[in-house]
Amino acid sequence: MYSQTNWLGEFFKHSLLLAGAIVVLLPFYLMLSYSFKSPSEIEANKGGFFGTQEIMTDNRCIKAGNPEEECLMRPIVYNYTAAFKEAPLVRYMLNGIFVTVSIFVIQVIIALPCAYALSKLRFWGRNVVFGMVIFCLLIPVHAIALPLYIMLAKVGLTNTYAALIIPWTISVFGIFLMRQFFMTVPDDLIDAARMDGMGEFSIVWQVMLPTAIPALLAFGIFSVVAHWNDYYWPRIVVTGNKDLMTPPLGLRMFKSDMDGNEYGPMMAATTVIVLPLVIIFLLAQRRFIEGITMTGMK
């Protein structure tokens, strides 16, 4: 039997969690809701979550000189077609995929050998190097953005994919996370591999990598989410070339192209951009949480 105070305590805990959940979810709710509604409904704040979905006329379509019958459609269809029509959303998404995947792959290629050396090899100055890794974790990206930009500009790499990818390829967080994980891999396993005749590089890729899959997945989610959503850095290095824009940068197109109220298509585009991340997170949720608890991070 639960006592009265216990019940109260539970109630308090859950209301707190609920409040937190509402704060986090409300923007998503609005985003989704706006992406369904017609401009007038958004303005008047009517129509509930899904809107009434009454047939509406597309003003731009008429301005473009089309007959009125062709410009009638439901708001949801209008919003989502406009999202894809007004900006090359597919192109942005492909850019986003290319950039985030490249970053992650190169991060892994660099972080795994580093983490292996820092956790399993004994060499002079190892602790100093590891101390520097931890120190680098403390440096905010924004602090070094300007020097990084200048360096890339001097090399002539601004407005290229390289500018979007190269600065992120060495992830101290990745090195740190993988090092912590490798510390838990028994030394015997590595010795066994050495006795079997593997070299150090084979050990990293054939023994350590397969055992580190859970940690890699967790790191992958951190990395992909961070760089898919990154607005700051692409905004700095992609100045003219619209073909290089990543999804968050592409969202700006709606703002600047706007004549009048275009929240509907903008929210539709946002939904499309956020969706892949939500799906990945839901699929890898358990691994993700394992990865965080495993290292005691965050």
Partner: peptide, 21 residues
């Protein structure tokens, strides 16, 4: 001479089998 070229085989207390194979 490197461990692998000494033509010795070792059995470990923790077995040290490759967990993914």
């Amino acid at each position: 001479i490197r461990p692998s070229l000494r033509d010795l085989a070792m059995v470990f207390q923790s077995y040290a089998l490759y967990p993914h194979l």
